[in-house]
Amino acid sequence: MNVAPPRPARNWPLLLGTLGFLVGMTWWSGHGIGFSLTELLCNLPGGQRLLQESWPPDFAFLPRLYAPFMETIYIAIIGTVVGGILAIPIAVLAARNLTLGPIVWFADRNFMNILRTLPDLFWAMMFATAVGFGPVAGALALSVFTIAVISKLWSESLEAIDMGMPEAVRAAGGTWLQMIQFGAIPQGLQHYVSYALYAFELNVRASMVLGLVGAGGIGMILETQRANFEYERVTMIILAVLVAVLVIEQISESIRKRLA
């Protein structure tokens, strides 16, 4: 009969060391931000009061959400379309197998990195300063955000395409642009549509947050009601947003699944 080898002993020093390290790190970080358990316990009644005031949601407020909610959707649509179109050349030039040359590739890659490093809230504040508070600033910020998302994801799937077809276009005397249009993009089209839908989902969610810094949409209403201590309305807004985001993600996801 085969006998299983004895179970190896646990590496206790490693386990305890890791645990100790994690506890130590957490304590050190909590100390760093001035976290204290006693203070938290003293403030609990305040949190309880907030929750009580936030319930029940103010359903009478729901109709007034329609216009700002649609504004949020418009912002997301414009951001996705504008950003999605601008992302095409940026993604192509960032794909090592398709780009025009090492200098163009390097410049484009770094441009993409800068777009991605700066958060969408930063872009919203920038554009709000530049073109004034409102939905236009939000749409511009989301366009930049969409470029960052799609160009990164898509340039990577373009790098994985079969280069045979682009070469065939070249061999028939096609230009670089024709090689991209007829040889490369047809292979990456499914991914592109999928990423654009994904970017739209992100944009719907992001455009709610962007309202907080004055970029229009439902986030702006949320911020005004919160500042006026209308917590039952705040709850209503959050509920409505939650439902809307879930519905949109479901639709988008089912389309993307069908594409794959």
Partner: peptide, 18 residues
């Protein structure tokens, strides 16, 4: 080079169709 390639057709083992 494109002017030359215009006059030279190529057929591949793996067909290379879209």
């Amino acid at each position: 080079l494109r002017v030359l390639r215009k006059r030279v057709g190529m057929i591949f083992q793996d067909f290379r169709l879209v």
